[in-house]
Nucleic acid binder design. Structure first.
Length: 581
RNA sequence: GAGCCCGUAGCUUAAUGGAUAGAGCAGCGGCCUCCUAAGCCGUUGAUGCAGGUUCGAUUCCUGCCGGGCUCACCA
């Protein structure tokens, strides 16, 4: 093993490895167990203070001594040679904190000489583990609405991030293609449907029929019964009902595919609810065998008194299945087929009670489900403050919003960079990127209020800002003509702003780890914004291409790495990073 | 009524119980004879209310006020 290679390994694993090193240094000096000690290590608010910190408050209590005195004592006790051997240049006591500094030049050199993928290669926490993620899951016979973007993009970004950390990922689109709603649609079709109109504009006409059904049902309650009846016939594989259902599904898929293509979203499996319709009897038999099923008001239910939840309905009084039954079948199917360590459901928070019930039933079938099932709930999307209802046929269409965003991007390009070669392509990347980023930058559980002017804003904390920063760096690299940027140690890297950037780059893998820990892609979005802001400040303060060759190299190596991380991060969010914008 | 979630600046928001509560938008004032001004710098401005736990609370607990969601044959 070469000297350089060993040095690379010394730092590669990012902050997490360095924290462990720090713990090893402190362990002989304090009487705190290793795990606890590790959890106490924190990152100081500014790099001026240090790169890692150990707060001495806990010890103060134990030792009955002022924390700032303890920090001073510990600083003196730490051997400088041992520090150096662990990659630290010095330690300082600042008030009650013991602050550690990395060997910055060396670390910088080593970090910049590896690619993002190499850095992540040491961080494959998911190797040999499978994660199943269910997301997007639109209902057929309805348009793909703007609010569907939440489940779709959160799920896709999570899938990408899990994959980047070495997990094997199964992406499932749990299409809403079964249930009483299709009975209602069939009932409406037989009453008012016209094939010509449906052929002309399938989804619009089907939604029209569905809305009409609900309007009429308010006046004539018998219609509800008619809808349930048609669903029952569909479940019994009535040929006419099945033929129509297949037709409606096919037309829906055509539209969904167009949207997914635009967004860059893909799935490993399209396993809609209908896929499990044949497994209903199995589920009922299984629950019966376990003695979980009870009759209540004519329906078959699993009581969940222990969890203080309402009972979970398995079979309706007319014998038809219900969505909980299909979710049970889906969970069992997924577990048996993929043997995952996690099964995630990216569905908005209004369904949290439903998932609590389903998970509680699964737990009774096999306790393993409690460990692996997780509802990744997210806040619903409001449009200009309002929540749309599909039953009334409201809500913005996603493809209309995307088209508008691309149009806006085109205008801005014509204004700011009219010479750009592939305007159309870039406008698409920027417009759609703006919409996706605007959604993903919000913390998962927050409600997102879609406001046109904010979503189409291309300045500040936006996707285009990140894309712009990326393009700016590539422009620098082109101008310098430096394709091969060779790594070197340089005092520049110790300057506060440069070091802050390097430290941020060094943290990247831990940001991905946090993203999958919290199942929250906004961690990546926020990180990218921070990185951009740092770079843009650097760019404003310093000339990158200068007389001094070594300095130019040092700066370009830094810039190049920033660009790579930006591109990598955007890709995880399913956003393109054009070379020029 | 019960359960769950949320109240941070005019607006949108950040902060594993820790150091000076960090940004963006909007406003005001600066910065392109020089590498993409979709940028940068400066400036005004915030933890709903009352208690409690703690060396330390935006964060944890209790109550109140305000908002959202859900509560058996829809998904």
């Amino acid at each position: 093993m070469s000297h350089l290679r060993r040095e690379v390994l010394k730092f590669r694993r990012t902050i997490i490895l360095m924290k462990q090193r720090l713990v090893n240094l402190l362990l002989p000096l304090v009487d705190i167990d290793e795990k606890r000690l590790l959890s106490l290590i924190e990152i100081p608010p500014s790099r001026e203070q240090g790169d890692l910190a150990f707060p001495c408050f806990q010890l103060a209590k134990q030792w009955r001594k002022a924390p700032h005195l303890i920090a001073q004592e510990l600083a003196e006790q730490l051997n400088p040679d041992t520090l150096t051997a662990s990659g630290f240049s010095k330690v300082e006591a600042t008030g009650p904190y013991l602050n550690f500094f990395f060997e910055r030049q060396k670390l910088a050199n080593q970090l910049l000489s590896i690619s993002v993928e190499e850095q992540l290669a040491d961080h494959q926490i998911g190797a040999n583990q499978t994660v199943v993620i269910e997301y997007s899951s639109p209902n057929i016979a309805k348009h793909f609405k703007l609010y569907h973007i939440r489940s779709t993009m959160i799920g896709q970004a999570l899938a990408n991030t899990y994959a980047a950390l070495g997990y094997h990922v199964e992406r499932i689109n749990h299409l809403g293609d079964w249930g009483t709603q299709f009975g209602k649609l069939l009932a409406a079709y037989f009453r008012w449907g016209e094939d010509e109109k449906i052929k002309a504009d399938p989804l619009t006409e089907l939604v029209h029929l569905y809305v009409k059904f609900h309007e009429e049902a308010e006046k004539n309650p018998d219609l509800e019964e008619e809808g349930r009846h048609w669903f029952k016939r569909l479940e019994e594989q009535d040929p006419e009902a099945t033929r129509l259902w297949e037709w409606f599904k096919e037309e829906s898929m055509k539209e969904f595919e167009k949207i997914y293509q635009l967004l860059g979203v893909r799935f490993d499996h399209y396993l809609g609810e209908s896929f499990y319709s044949s497994k209903m009897d199995e589920i009922v038999a299984l629950l019966e065998e376990k003695g979980l099923l009870k009759e209540s008001e004519g329906a078959q239910v699993v009581p969940l008194d222990e969890e203080q939840l309402p009972p979970c309905i398995i079979k309706k009084s007319d014998g038809a299945s219900i969505y909980a039954t299909r979710d049970l079948a889906a969970a069992i199917y997924r577990y048996e087929r993929f043997k995952p360590i996690k099964m995630l459901y990216v569905v908005d928070y209004r369904q949290s009670l439903h998932f609590q019930q389903v998970f509680a039933v699964l737990k009774r079938i096999d306790p393993i489900y409690e460990q692996i099932c997780e509802h990744i709930d997210f806040g619903v999307m409001k449009i200009e403050g309002e929540i749309g209802s599909t039953r009334k046929g409201k809500g913005l269409l996603l493809h209309e919003v995307l088209n508008e965003a691309v149009k806006r991007a085109e205008q801005i390009i014509n204004e700011k960079n009219p010479q750009l070669a592939n305007k159309e392509e870039v406008a698409k990347a920027v417009g759609i990127g703006a919409i996706i980023f605007n959604d993903l930058k919000h913390h998962r559980t927050r409600e997102v209020n879609f406001v046109w002017d904010e979503a189409f804003n291309f300045e500040g904390k936006t996707g285009p800002y990140v894309q712009y920063t990326h393009a700016r760096i590539l422009s620098l690299l082109r101008r310098a003509g430096a394709v091969e940027v060779s790594p070197l140690e340089h005092p520049l890297y110790e300057q506060p702003l440069c070091w802050e950037i390097l430290y941020t780059l060094y943290r990247y893998p831990s940001v991905l780890e946090e993203t999958v820990e919290k199942n929250d892609p906004s961690q990546i979005a926020k990180y990218l914004l921070d990185l951009c802001q740092l770079f843009n400040r650097f760019y404003a303060e310093e000339r990158i291409i200068v007389e001094d060759q070594a300095e130019t190299q040092a700066k370009l190596a830094l810039c190049q790495h920033i660009a790579r991380v930006l591109k990598h991060g955007l890709k995880l969010l399913t956003i393109e990073a054009p070379d020029e914008i």
